[in-house]
Simulated assay, not measured.
Amino acid sequence: MADDGRMSNTTGDGTRAVRAGLPEPVAHEPTMPGPVFAAHYHLPGEPAGPYTYGRENNPTWTGLEAAIGELEHPGGDTETVVFPSGMGAISAVLLSQARTGDAVVLPDDGYQALPLVRERLETYGVEVRTAPTAGDAQLDVLDGAKLLWIETPSNPGLDVCDIRRLAAAAHDRGALVAVDNTLATPLGQRPLELGADFSVASGTKALTGHGDVLLGYVTCRDPELAAAVRLWRKTAGAILGPMEAWLAHRSLSTLQLRVDRQAATALALAEALRERPDVTGLRHPGLPDDPAHRMAKAQMRGGRFGCVVSFTLPDKDRAERFLAALRLVDDATSFGGVRSTAERRGRWGGDAVPEGFIRFSVGVEDTADLVADVLAALDEAARG
């Protein structure tokens, strides 16, 4: 342990996930305090102290924010701000930084709700430029921008860009850099250590991992940037409930176990799908011949290439039959949970994907069982 009570930056990922954000032991007290439900606090005299009003702070947030900061940038000084959803976190960064007349750069193949943010930014007089994630193409539209938004691996296409290269180029041009780290998780990728100013994620996905909590967060090294994000949270009232914060912190204890199991099974599933003639467009960054593999191997940590595998079946009907034939997989739209999910992504519109495109999120089921279920469902779908 460091002098300030934090774990050293050489502590293992599993140990860190189990211990992150916990208070110093107090005799006869819980090892992890329960959620604090409070709209206001005793506040005699001047409004000083860490807790004054429930929209501004909460002890349960404090523990979770400390834990996430320890995972995102071990051994470093960070500030984390939690939100009630990933979109709350995304909006807080973009809307706290961009002003009328500014330009921001977004990926054109990123999260499905980014176009909603783009529409809002343009309403406020912010210029929005877009470019694909692959090939570091956002470099071509970076000049004069106030902020660069990176999503790597991208959702749902699973392309990867060079965070360090893009961050250096953006900073040379005077732009801030935010990285959506949702799919990688802080165990698979540490954007702040690669030069980003903001690491942002939907904790709804793999971070909490049980499909029962909506959560978002922003982690920064610069206190002024964190203060701007926190002020946006206070002003908008976009606050996380204490129960959700407690559930999220509790879930971090198994993060390393879940992420490692999911990454290993996702790779095994991708390898099995390579043998299927009815599967095209197979993507997983862990596959040696995947277009993103070289960069992912250099940038992502510990062989953790994520839990998502994407592929395309011949048409919409085949995809629907495949999903209906699965026995161990839920047809649901999130990813990163302990129970495997899959969906035909084109049902939502907005993503530039074929009608038969499947986004598959691997859970923690036994690898052999899950792979067998998928292959059997493909066979059943092919029979019509």
Results as ranks from 00 to 15, higher is better:
Ala296Arg: 06
Gln262Ile: 01
Leu287Asn: 08
Leu267Phe: 07
Thr254Tyr: 09
Gly286Lys: 00
Thr280Phe: 07
Pro277Ala: 11
Val259Trp: 02
His284Ser: 03
Arg261Lys: 15
Gln262Gly: 01
Arg261Gly: 04
Leu287Cys: 09
Pro285Gln: 12
Gln299Val: 06
Gln299Ala: 12
Pro288Asp: 13
Ala298Trp: 07
Ala292Ser: 15
Leu273Lys: 03
Gly302Asn: 13
Asp278Glu: 15
Ser253Lys: 14
Ala270Val: 11
His284Gly: 02
Gly302His: 14
Gly281Thr: 13
Gln256Thr: 14
Leu257Lys: 03
Ala270Cys: 10
Leu257Arg: 07
Arg274Ile: 06
Arg274Ser: 10
Arg274Lys: 15
Arg301Gly: 06
Ala248Lys: 03
Ala266Cys: 01
Arg276Pro: 01
Gln262Trp: 01
Val279Arg: 09
Ala272Gln: 03
Gly302Asp: 14
Gly281Arg: 12
His293Ser: 03
Leu252Val: 08
Arg258Gln: 03
Ala266Ile: 00
Leu257Tyr: 07
Pro277Arg: 13
Pro277Leu: 04
Leu269Pro: 03
Arg276Leu: 02
Glu271Tyr: 08
Asp289Thr: 15
Ala266Asp: 00
Arg261Pro: 01
Arg250Ile: 05
Arg294Pro: 04
Ala272Asn: 07
Thr254Leu: 12
Asp278Met: 12
Val259Gln: 05
Asp260Lys: 02
Val279Ser: 12
Ala292Val: 11
Asp278Pro: 10
Lys297Pro: 00
Arg258Ala: 01
Ala296Pro: 07
Leu287Pro: 05
Arg274Ala: 12
Arg276Gln: 15
Ala248Cys: 10
Ala292Gly: 11
Arg301Asn: 13
Met300Asp: 06
Gln256Leu: 03
Ala263Ile: 03
Ala264Arg: 00
Met295Glu: 09
Val279Ala: 07
Ala272Arg: 08
Val279His: 11
Pro288Tyr: 10
Gly286Tyr: 04
Thr254Lys: 10
Arg250Met: 10
Arg301Ile: 12
Leu267Lys: 08
Gly286Pro: 01
Asp278His: 10
Gly303Thr: 10
Arg258Asp: 00
Pro288Trp: 11
Arg283Ala: 04
Arg301His: 12
Leu282His: 13
Thr254Cys: 09
Val259Ala: 15
Val259Asp: 03
Leu257Ser: 03
Ser253Tyr: 10
Leu282Pro: 06
Ala298Asn: 07
Arg274Val: 09
Ala298Tyr: 08
Ala263Glu: 00
Gln299Trp: 06
Arg294Asn: 07
Asp278Ala: 12
Leu273Val: 08
Arg274Cys: 14
Ala264Leu: 01
Asp278Asn: 10
Arg261Trp: 06
Ala263Lys: 00
Leu269Met: 11
Leu255Gln: 02
Leu287Trp: 08
Arg250Gly: 15
Ala268His: 04
Glu275His: 14
Thr254Ala: 15
His249Met: 05
